[in-house]
């Protein structure tokens, strides 16, 4: 199978692999410690663990874009902020 048209780079491949790992990790987590049932969070929404992962990923995309638009420092800072934000989302949303 010729995949040259998809123009893979190791950077993007690891990005998607990380997301796939996260989803797999969620499955393992749910299997090891069930608790994914919806819960009422600070946003007033009922969210499951999957919802929280989605919110974390979406907000991390916006945090990175915001960093690129407004800041000049290395992008890793945005990744760090996203990580802290994701923990907060999983804890309180």
């Amino acid at each position: 199978m010729d995949l040259t048209w998809m123009a893979w780079t190791w950077q993007t491949a690891s990005f998607f692999a990380a997301i796939a790992l996260m989803i797999a990790g969620m499955a393992v987590w749910e299997w090891a410690r069930p608790g994914g049932a919806p819960r009422h969070g600070v946003l007033g929404l009922d969210t499951t663990r999957g919802d929280r992962l989605f919110v974390s990923l979406l907000s991390s995309a916006y945090i990175h874009l915001g960093w690129l638009a407004l800041m000049t420092g290395p992008l890793w800072w945005a990744t760090l902020i996203s990580f802290v934000f994701a923990i907060a989302v999983f804890r309180w949303v």
């Binding site: 048209w5 998809m6 123009a7 893979w8 780079t9 950077q11 993007t12 998607f16």
Partner: peptide
């Protein structure tokens, strides 16, 4: 798959 391709294009 198309979305992945777009992501790949966006960094090259």
């Amino acid at each position: 798959i198309p979305l992945m391709t777009v992501v790949n294009y966006s960094v090259q």
